[in-house]
Design a protein around this nucleic acid. Structure first.
Lengths: 220, 220
DNA sequence: ATCGGTCTTTGCGCCGGCGCAAATAACAGA
DNA sequence: TCTGTTATTTGCGCCGGCGCAAAGACCGAT
């Protein structure tokens, strides 16, 4: 039986029950504990995933390996589709930040399925479009906004009710800065009472305060 | 008759002659002079384009309008497909840097065509994947590399044999900095004999010299 | 030739943010 | 409970890069 919350995933919109059953038949389920890699940068891109539960960090590092940039994948999001989109190898590393449950498909089989299921391909194109726009807006942000603005925005975007399972280093990679600056900034905000810090986690207490910072000083 | 160089465009790979004829039947040709907009950010995204000749600058600006980020579109590339990927409006502005010739399709009709031509959709997915990876590598660059490294890389990537029709401001937007810094840096490089500057254009004289700068100081 | 507009250069001062280094603090496993 | 490991904080100094302002340089049009 197919759980209804799965059927409602954006990836499956517009598919017939038959298509969906077939698609799920090809999938196998994968579960991981915290801090486990789904794949590493450079691995053969032979799988693609749909995250059902947990959080995944997708990160890239420079050739010299010094620093990195990252983005977060939440429940319901897809990741690791580089192979489907014609890449031989994964460009980044995917690592679980918490215990995860995911569906995995074989890349080659998925490509065949896409040729037979145009509706799915178009949906996928839409999802990738959204991700492309997000990446381009990050470029704009990095080029124009200050670190504290980017950090505030990142916290607002990711903060569910629950505490975020992110280290200072993770946050630094998410918003394009260093762990030192993140630590200093967060500490200042904690002392202002806007959030509560923990080791490898934090909780936002006052979204309005962060929202005020996220915008450039009021251009009235 | 369909020109062969058109048939060889990546977008059309794997299509039957029949599909291709149909597709081109839907297209209309658009030509522009220099410094003309194909569309503006916020316009209804009702067209999508394939550039046949010329150069187009795709740019986004912050809500406050101060600065911007840009990317270049060359002959053979597609642009303005946000509507096809489910967006109501264009997220950025497309402006010709030189006289251009482009094919244009209606967004709605293209979406229908995609449902009927899975092969084309998959190709499009591949092209978008490449663009997504490029955007993500730009994020990494902005977060880790210095301005002169990014600038050198940008010049190397874009420099054909011909001179580039880019102002200092354009270059600043392409590599995420300000026109002042671009001017200073380029001037230094011109005095080193690595390039030749003009008003609104420049030509690379020594690619090796730039390549050396593009990489972080030799991590042996 | 002249004039207005756009693009470019460069001096100057300032500051956001980096990153080493060292001291804690928190956790995990034996 | 003890111990090694990993994460965090913070002082300090430095520097890359921003951005105003003003002075050219170049272009096209009348």
């Amino acid at each position: 039986m197919i759980p209804s919350h799965l059927r409602q995933n954006p990836l499956f919109q517009g598919l017939t029950g038959c298509d969906l059953t077939l698609l799920l038949g090809y999938a196998h389920e994968k579960t991981t504990k915290r801090a486990t890699a789904f794949f590493h940068a450079g691995d053969t891109a032979d799988r693609c995933f749909l995250l059902l539960e947990g959080h995944v960090k997708l990160s890239q590092t420079t050739p010299s390996g010094a620093q990195g940039a990252a983005r977060l994948i939440g429940a319901g999001d897809i990741f690791g589709w580089a192979g489907v989109m014609g890449q031989a190898r994964y460009p980044g590393t995917a690592e679980s930040l918490a215990a995860c449950r995911a569906l995995a498909w074989d890349t080659g089989r998925m490509r065949q399925t896409l040729l037979a299921t145009p509706r799915l391909t178009l949906t996928l194109l839409t999802l990738m479009g959204a991700r492309l726009r997000e990446a381009e807006s990050r470029v704009l942000d990095l080029a124009t906004a200050r670190v504290d603005q980017r950090l505030a925005r990142t916290l607002l975007r990711q903060s569910s009710a629950a505490a975020l399972p992110l280290t200072r280093q993770d946050l630094a990679e998410l918003c394009g800065t260093t762990l030192y600056t993140v630590s200093r900034t967060l500490r200042r905000w904690e002392q202002a009472g806007w959030l509560r810090l923990g080791r490898g986690s934090l909780r936002v207490l006052s979204r309005p305060a962060l929202a005020a910072l996220a915008e450039p000083p009021d251009a009235s």
